[in-house]
Design a protein around this nucleic acid. Structure first.
Length: 727
DNA sequence: GAGCACTGC
């Protein structure tokens, strides 16, 4: 019966797709047939309700999307293959339409009838999962959260009726930890696969395994451009389908000679466009906040100097840490002419990479691409991730230029030579998995049951040293035993959406009688900086921050902020008066609640040392050391800090709140900028180190250094004391 | 005495 219905549907589909010149009326009729149920074509198959007028209007528009021309081809390929690769550029409609095509073609009924199998479609970003699912719910004429839903951290908007679920790639990975064969799903669509996020890369390898054990499961990998052939090779030659995009042509210009100063060149190019080119907004890609704010000032100044003949300009900065209200300005229209009949105005958006993938601005006609962005790099030798201004890839340059052609034909000015584009730029940005500390990823893989990491089928295998480093860290933390098997502790740690060090500190915190406080600190460390420091009120902001300062450490300062926030009833105006970011605090509260739920699930006690006890802060500092003993720095007699074992010279980040230079500190972050900084540091005692991490601080295989000599003395002192107490 | 590309659980 099911098959018969499917076949019938396909016949009518075929009519719609093949006969692109059918009259609107005929197409509508076919539309009914496609989406109606067997007894009544006017009734929505999914919820049994009659279709709305809006549904039919949207359906007409949907049919004009490029991907509709290959609907039948896609469905045939889906039927015949377990894995499919679909390449479609911006504007092809793949993200919204393909999942709906899939819904029509697969059987989702489960015998028990209480729920249905689902189709999953992953997205790298939360906003995309949310906004696309809303759109698709509208297209399918159902309520969001019912037949079509989404699932992102902190928000599961789906129900037992849900048949199509958009979710972040990280969320699907989480689901896989509890349901290794992903048995709730009949089809999994990995969208934006070309972005090669860490989670997508892990899902690639995982799904390859799952597909072997689930012949009824299908996988669709959707990507924009280029690497599709690589995907094909990786997925055993799965068929590849290409769907054209729908962008306006963009003319590319290169410089004749290499530019020495890309910032200066970018501003010069902006002025040339402004003075010589027809109306249209400009998008400039720069690398970071400071550079962008600086450039905005310079541009405004030069425009003012150029005089009124050229029309008014509105310069707008854009980067992710900009408050949302300021970000909204990129959607403001260009300013009107100064006087009637005057030159039209122009909007100039100066942005980081956010405008390359995460945010799209319509109306951009000119793109200026200096060819650089800040990229994460990882040095496994010293276990440090840092941000480095680096040349972008060809794929990235292509994506940037495409931003000029969203609403009309555009122009892209690349501030490098064509030769440089061809010879110097890598085809693709290195996938994140090759640029990251993998401690957390390895823990996840172990939890997913992948025991042999060396032979795990990564699309791009990480450096062996990176994997070794990750295994070593997890072993020291007690998450893996000496054979590399997940321990009970490791299993619990993997349940927390935190880095392994932080997860460890949290899991052991009840032993130090301070899990409530460690929960708050973990939450505060998981959110972006909560301290506001507006350019115009830096001094006042610093003073406000000093009120929260705890002299023994920045972690404790963060705890003070959290406590003060709660004592003031999470009041937003209290936040502003104290230069605290209320959104960040709200986020911290969310994280904390999530962590508490996991603690409760694993019977981890929620407890505190009496606040009046002199052990209150000591217990907290010891618990932190239990997680962060591999991130300890020692103050040398020369006056600077050296990280223990790795022996890197580091400096306390100037944002710290300590009033002294402790002999030993733990740090949350190693940041490599103008110097090596350790940020968010707390004073710990040498004696605690011996008690809490004796294995890591075993002096037998410890590099020769001042810290070692100090520890030796401490061990000897302890031995003496031990003997004295025996006697 | 300095900074924060971008995501995600």
């Amino acid at each position: 019966m099911g098959m018969e219905r499917k076949r019938k549907r396909k016949v009518s589909l075929f009519d719609v797709v093949d006969d692109t010149c059918v009259s609107a009326k005929l197409a509508k009729t076919n539309g009914f047939a496609v989406h109606g149920n067997d007894t009544n074509p006017l009734v929505n198959r999914w919820n049994g309700r009659p279709y709305s007028k809006r549904y039919l209007e949207i359906l007409e528009k949907r049919k004009t999307l490029p991907v509709w021309h290959q609907k039948e081809e896609f469905l045939q390929a889906l039927k015949a293959n377990q894995t499919l690769i679909l390449v479609g550029e911006t504007g092809s409609g793949k993200t919204t339409q393909i999942p709906q095509f899939v819904l029509e073609a697969v059987e989702l009924e489960i015998p028990d009838k209480r729920r249905k199998f689902m189709v999953a479609c992953t997205q790298p970003r939360r906003v995309a999962a949310m906004s696309v699912s809303r759109r698709v719910a509208e297209e399918m004429d159902v309520n969001i959260g019912e037949e079509v839903g989404y699932s992102i951290r902190f928000e599961d908007c789906s129900s037992s009726r849900t048949v199509l679920k958009y979710l972040t790639d990280g969320m699907l990975l989480r689901e896989a930890m509890a349901d290794p064969l992903l048995e709730r799903y009949k089809v999994i669509i990995l969208d934006e696969a070309h972005e090669r996020t860490l989670a997508t890369d892990v899902l690639f390898g995982l799904l390859k395994e799952v597909l072997k054990n689930r012949p009824d499961l299908k996988l669709v990998v959707m990507s924009a451009t280029l690497e599709a052939e690589k995907f094909q090779g990786y997925f055993y030659g799965a068929p590849l389908m290409k769907v054209p995009g729908r962008l306006h042509p963009v003319e590319i210009f290169y410089t004749e000679e290499p530019e020495r100063d890309y910032l200066e060149a970018a501003i010069r190019t902006i002025m040339q466009i402004h003075m010589c080119e027809p109306p249209g907004d400009i998008l400039v890609f720069l690398t970071g906040e400071e550079e962008i704010e600086d450039a905005c000032k310079k541009i405004s100044k030069q425009v003012a100097n150029a005089g009124d003949v050229y029309g008014p300009v509105k310069v707008v900065p854009l980067y992710s840490t900009l408050p949302p209200a300021m970000q909204q300005k990129i959607f403001d229209p260009a300013p009107p002419p100064v006087m009637v009949g005057g030159s039209p105005g122009r909007k100039i958006v100066v942005s980081t990479n956010v405008a390359e993938t995460s945010l799209t601005i319509d109306g951009i006609v000119y793109v200026i691409d200096p060819g650089f962005s800040k990229q994460k790099v990882y040095n496994p030798r010293i276990r440090v991730e840092s941000l480095l201004v680096s040349p972008i890839s060809k794929a990235s340059a292509h994506q940037r230029s495409g931003r000029a052609g969203r609403t009309q034909p555009g122009k892209c000015f690349r501030l490098y030579t064509e030769k440089s584009f061809n010879n110097d730029l890598q085809p693709q940005t290195y996938p994140e998995i090759l640029r990251s500390n993998l401690a957390n990823t390895v823990l996840t893989l172990k939890k997913l049951g992948i025991d042999d990491l060396v032979h795990f089928d990564f699309m791009d295998p990480p450096a062996p040293e990176t994997l070794m480093r990750a295994l070593e860290v997890l072993n020291y933390l007690g998450a893996l035993d000496d054979d590399g098997n997940l321990t009970k502790l490791g299993e619990i740690m993997s349940e927390f959406p935190l880095d392994p060090q932080m997860a460890k500190m949290l899991v052991v915190s009840p032993e130090f009688n301070c899990s409530n406080e460690i929960l708050s600190i973990s939450a505060m460390l998981s959110i972006p900086n909560c301290f506001l420091r507006p350019r115009e009120a830096q001094k006042a902001a610093d003073e406000a921050k000093a009120n929260f300062a705890h002299i023994d450490g920045d972690h404790l300062t963060l705890l003070n902020v959290y406590h003060a926030y709660k004592e003031n009833n999470e009041d937003a105006s209290w936040c502003y008066e104290n230069f605290i970011n209320p959104r960040a605090m709200k986020a911290a509260d969310n994280v904390r609640e999530q962590l508490v739920r996991i603690m409760v699930r694993y019977n981890l006690k929620l407890c505190s040392t009496d606040f009046n006890s002199c052990d209150y802060y000591i217990d907290i500092r010891k618990a932190m050391l239990a997680g962060y003993f591999m991130q300890v720095a020692h103050l040398e007699r020369t006056g600077h800090y050296l990280t223990v074992k790795d022996k890197q010279v580091v400096h306390l980040h100037p944002s710290n709140c300590l009033n002294h230079k402790p002999e030993w500190v733990i740090y949350n972050e190693f940041v490599l900028t103008s110097r090596n900084f350790i940020r968010t540091v707390t004073d710990v005692h040498g004696e605690w180190i011996l008690d809490i991490a004796p294995r890591y601080f075993n002096l037998e295989n410890f590099p020769q250094c001042e810290a070692k000599r100090v520890l030796e003395k401490l061990y000897k002192k302890r031995e003496r004391e031990g003997e004295e107490s025996k006697n």
